[in-house]
Computed example of a mutant assay.
Amino acid sequence: MAKEDIQLFVKAQKASYDTKCLHGALDCDEKPIRAHSIQNARVLDLIQTEGHVTMPQYKLVKGEPVIKFEKVGRNDASTFSGLCSKHDTELFKAIDTEPLNVDKCEHLRQLAYRSVMREMHTELANSERLWAIHEEICREQKVDPGEAGSEASIRSLGFTKKAHNVFRYRSKHFDKPTEDGKTPDLRHLIIEMDNQKPVLAASALFSVGFTEEGDIIGPTLNILPLNATKTVGIISYPKEQEAAVKASLAKVFDADEKTLKYELAKLVIQRVENFTLSPAHYDTWSDDKKARVLREFEASLREPKDIPDHPDLNIFL
């Protein structure tokens, strides 16, 4: 990578994209706050080691951007600036102030909605980062960013489209029912893992396909340690997408007690980028396991794919 490209990469990675509150119809003008998509006080506190968690992060190595598992301060881990203080409090009061109860539908809905909000903000932030790089290139070349094209501008538009898809998904399955006085019609697969140390947490929305109208078919996935010996995994999805989600995630839905945790771990590697590991747990992995998990994770980032089975992929162990 050329020196000027490295400078652009570093500049884009460090930039903060606190654009606006993304509540509802996007008509709130209050400044967004930094909030945790994976709760700090209860969840990250259980898996942190000396105030840090381990997450996949982009780093420059010999002038090239690569993904590595790195320690991140718990106060910075999994944060996003998608909502103002008022709307963040209104939307997530239950899960932020009460112990998680998987028998409470409101808790499950709020977890799913936070995953959707975080994904929408992430796609918009990615788009803005790439557009900033495009504008910098255009300034150097003394051309109009609105008229010229670049790889960065093309990729920026791609992320904008993804953000719009998430917005439509959110509007249809969460916002519109709520505005109409109805409860969002979701279904949940709850995976309770007893005798599981707190080593992994995750929050994500991902697509397993698209409807004929081009809308996302997407479940959310939350993995949350509840205490020192119990972790829960929650897959949530709109009722109307139940058949498609179950078919796409059959290896998880059809897994037996012996294989369920392994299949869930593989799903995280395949489809989730917003997850945190306990540094103390990660440090127990062999070099081969660290390399395999990173290799399969990085390959799946480019294009979700089946991962060859291997015991090292069980990141709960």
Score class of each variant (00 low, 15 high):
F174H: 13
K197E: 14
Q141L: 15
V143Y: 04
S153A: 03
P99K: 13
R168I: 15
P184H: 04
E212Y: 07
G149E: 12
S207R: 10
F210L: 05
S150R: 01
F167Q: 09
S156I: 03
D88L: 12
D103K: 14
K86R: 13
I137A: 08
Q196N: 14
H107F: 09
T89C: 08
L91S: 04
H173F: 15
T97H: 01
P184W: 05
L157A: 06
F210P: 02
K172W: 00
I137Y: 07
L124E: 02
C138A: 14
T178S: 13
S153P: 00
R129H: 01
E128T: 08
G218T: 06
G181T: 11
K172V: 03
E213D: 11
G149A: 14
R118E: 08
E106G: 04
E212V: 06
E135N: 12
V208A: 05
P145L: 03
D144Q: 07
S207L: 02
T89L: 08
Q110G: 10
L124I: 13
G218K: 01
K197I: 08
I95R: 04
E128D: 11
D96Q: 14
R118P: 02
V199K: 10
L157Y: 11
G214F: 06
D194N: 09
P198Y: 09
R155Y: 04
K182S: 08
D96R: 07
E98W: 06
A125Y: 00
R129A: 15
H134G: 07
Y113P: 02
H134E: 02
Q110W: 13
A202D: 07
E213M: 10
K197M: 11
T211S: 12
E140V: 13
G214I: 03
E147N: 09
R139Y: 02
D215A: 15
K172Q: 08
A204I: 05
G209Q: 04
N195I: 02
E106W: 10
T160I: 11
D96G: 01
R118M: 11
S156V: 01
T211K: 13
S85Y: 12
I133M: 11
Q196D: 03
P219E: 09
K176A: 05
A94M: 00
A148S: 06
P198R: 04
L130Q: 04
G214K: 01
